[in-house]
């Protein structure tokens, strides 16, 4: 049986992860250490949980750059509520509700006013960071105050069990749920259809606007979950929380084969993308290179990923063109035979 393109793409990412890991393991002494793997998984989980949400938006043909802002806002809310001593499920629930509301706002603005999602989410990202500044604890004089969370229940979320941080467990669970939703439910298939061709979806009875709004909402909720775990680990929230995450998450998704423009990819791809990007950053650090070279290398990895996607498309288009030409020839042959038979 031939392996489908979707699987091939994932196997390639997986192979790259293994090869790169092997190289790092062979050339550095600390890459394979237990604590380093724990650390890779912890960092990848943070990016990865955001990627789960972003993948929904990307598959439906949109883009969300406001994740950083939502993380900042919801993270600060987590911090404040946890300091107040609320039990952790309530804190997380509140953050998720606020995150979902932020995502809903994104979707509503984009579909209601027919805005471009790139620029809209770029703008709302700033707005949400601004909300974060409004929400953060302040001194009576109006200056920002740094709060330390001592809420034991909430801090649990930042701990680990059997070597696995809770955030890693959450990441795997969320990824599996998202993958199931994306590939096995009506909702997921409608999301994919919306990204593949919004106009066709409309004509096929898919409520495209509702799909978009829902996907942005899911993305906001995922950002809040990621933020809650990270705040629990760091025991505090600050204004630069989540900065740069908007682009990082999109980049990781793309590396994992979630297509910009929609219609292709799933949460497993996003998962692998997050692992890959984290390994690249982690491994490169071990060479003691200048940070500038790390940036260059990370950028190059993203470029190579999208270039190979383009190449992939060309190759498969050629292969399939051959198939369809073969079919056309067969059809013509059959027509001729039919004609011959009739005579």
């Amino acid at each position: 049986m031939k392996i489908s393109q979707k699987i091939t793409r994932k196997l390639i990412t997986l192979a790259l992860i293994v090869i790169l890991s092997a190289i790092f393991a062979a050339t550095t002494s600390s890459f394979l250490k237990l604590i380093n793997i724990q650390e890779i998984l912890r960092v990848a989980a943070y990016t990865g949980i955001i990627c789960v949400g972003v993948s929904f938006v990307l598959i439906s043909g949109g883009i969300d750059l406001s994740s950083g802002g939502i993380i900042c806002f919801t993270g600060i809310i987590c911090c404040r509520l946890a300091v107040l001593g609320l039990p952790w499920p309530l804190v997380v629930l509140a953050a998720v509700v606020v995150g979902a509301a932020c995502g809903f706002l994104n979707g509503w603005l984009i579909t209601r006013f027919y805005l471009n999602d790139f620029i809209t989410t770029l703008a709302t990202g700033f707005v949400f960071s601004g909300f974060g500044l409004l929400a953060i604890a302040k001194e009576p004089s109006g200056t920002v105050m740094s709060q330390t969370i001592r809420n034991r229940g909430f801090l649990m979320l930042g701990k680990h069990v059997g070597g696995f941080y809770y955030i890693v467990i959450a990441w795997v669970v969320l990824t599996l749920i998202a993958w199931f939703v994306q590939t096995r439910t009506r909702y997921g298939l409608h999301t994919c259809a919306t990204g593949s061709n919004a106009k066709s979806s409309e004509m096929s009875g898919v409520n495209v606007r509702r799909m978009k709004v829902m996907n942005f909402t899911i993305c906001g909720a995922c950002c809040a979950i990621g933020a809650a775990f990270t705040v629990a680990y760091q025991q505090t929230a600050y204004l630069s929380l989540g900065s740069g995450m908007g682009f990082d998450a999109v980049a990781a998704c793309v590396v994992g084969g979630v297509m910009l423009g929609g219609g292709k990819g799933d949460a497993i791809g996003a998962f692998l993308g997050a692992v890959f990007m984290t390994i690249v950053t982690n491994g490169m650090r071990k060479y003691g290179l200048d940070t500038s070279w790390q940036y260059v290398f990370e950028g190059a990895v993203i470029l190579i990923a999208i270039m190979s996607d383009a190449g992939f498309a060309v190759v498969s288009a050629r292969r399939l063109k051959a198939i369809s030409e073969k079919n056309a020839n067969e059809e013509a042959l059959m027509e001729a035979q039919k004609g011959g038979g009739a005579q």
Binding site: S4, I17, L32, K33, I37, I268, V275
Partner: peptide
């Protein structure tokens, strides 16, 4: 296909677990 997908995910997890187990002496 479903199986392969799960396999891919399990592989990554296994990779991680195996590495951890391998390093457990360190731990």
């Amino acid at each position: 296909k479903k199986f392969r997908k799960i396999l891919a995910l399990v592989l990554v997890t296994l990779l991680a677990v195996a590495l951890m187990a391998g390093c457990s002496n360190d731990g």
